[in-house]
Write a protein that binds this DNA or RNA. Structure first.
Lengths: 230, 230
DNA sequence: CCAAAAGTGTTCATCGTACACCCATGT
DNA sequence: ACATGGGTGTACGATGAACACTTTTGG
């Protein structure tokens, strides 16, 4: 079981781009922290950590996200492996970036405080260490692509949500306004939403009906090749 | 410059999914080899190699492809990092897979012979070692996506090619027939092709006009957000 | 003259997009 | 009563899909 002992080993890390959305706001956010160790101590950074030889990349990514948010079972996808020789000023490290989508109201804010992390609006990102800005840019690009082909918007909203909330989310992701009539029509036409009898009354006097996502229908549609274009 | 010395290092490899196309045939091919060392010696495998601490991931991938094909400057894209703990029976290895597209007639067939490699039609793939089949599947998926959004078909054909050749390529990628009238119209409408005065006369008595790819036009279109849907 | 591949136009259905007014209700 | 956000329908242009015959020429 030790066939490759002559080859050089390398440090491998995982960095997590954690997207969050608050259904009452209009902006997508990223969970960033001030780095607590050298090099670049005190500067803004993504959450990261080294891979243990006993864990898979996917597990390491989950571990990192759980460490900062307390959340398990979040939407998570591998983004890209960053492997330039001098990308990290502290030594030669290959970093595999993952992005995850979480419901911002469900995370553990004590943990976030403990690590000196904050939710930062994507239009107001600070300078980040190393190649983390490139990671974020790439994650945004991939998120936009995913949001067209998979209903990942639902990962960022509570189980019950209104159509205007969903629209605000998509507008935050693409940074463009949508026509609300077309948006609603197209979305309902997919047959993935179930209307509830309950209304959300915080944001308007009239109130907006809650909907929920029908996972069974989604499974059926996936078979036939769903397109989720908005 | 040695801030992270307490953390465990891991073996990192690159595996290359090398796609090729012969403009006179109808099938997409993969360059595979019979592994020349244990474990799994003698079984079909992708070309791979370990990362040197002094080289980037991208450079390692280029090096691997050049080693087997003699080709430099080929289209190459990172596919995915495979990181399950037991994915390689020889030890814990993280492998970053890349896929590349080459013009099958331009490669160095001596090198290929030297490594015991062969071009295998994608519909007749043998069993592959470890998780290499998963890598190939994922590469096919990504290739299909790329072929819709970037004119990568041109990477797989000689500089001069005919429209029927290009159509055969796309049919090989998607494994579906296209209507030749629609295919031609859509393609020419993009304005990326320049008709030459010369004809290709091998495959038909009438002969088909050669075209070439206009890279300048392509650059212009990229700015405005090209869609290359067929 | 015939086989084999290249080349060419039109029609129809579908889908995306643009656009303006009424509704419900808390204050 | 009014301000605020929620909810609804239609018309037009663009785009994708289906479809059959003529052209060229080597053998």
């Amino acid at each position: 079981m030790n066939f490759y002992s002559d080859f050089p080993k390398i440090l491998v890390a995982v960095d997590a781009i954690i997207f969050g959305f608050n259904e009452n706001e209009h902006e997508l956010k990223l969970l960033l922290l001030k780095r607590q160790f050298a090099p670049e101590k005190g500067n803004w950074s993504l959450m990261g950590g080294f891979i243990d030889p006993e864990e898979s990349l996917d597990n390491a990514a989950q571990r990192i996200v759980k460490k900062l948010t307390g959340l398990d079972q979040v939407y998570m996808e591998q983004l890209y492996a960053f492997g330039d020789v001098n990308r990290d000023a502290g030594g030669r490290i290959i970093s595999v970036a993952y992005f995850s989508l979480i419901k911002i109201n469900e995370h553990d804010s004590e943990l976030v405080k403990k690590y000196g992390a904050s939710w930062i609006t994507i239009s107001e990102l600070p300078k980040l260490i190393f190649d983390h800005e490139e990671m974020v840019k790439r994650a945004m690009r991939k998120l936009r692509i995913r949001a067209r082909t998979q209903p990942i918007g639902f990962e960022l909203l509570p189980n019950k949500f209104t159509i205007p909330q969903l629209q605000r989310l998509y507008e935050a992701i693409y940074q463009v306004p949508f026509d609300k009539r077309n948006f609603r029509r197209k979305l309902l036409a997919m047959g993935l939403l179930e209307k509830l009898d309950e209304k959300e009354k915080e944001t308007s006097k009239k109130g907006a009906f809650y909907y929920q996502f029908n996972k069974t229908k989604y499974g059926e549609l996936l078979e036939k090749g769903l397109n989720f274009d908005l």
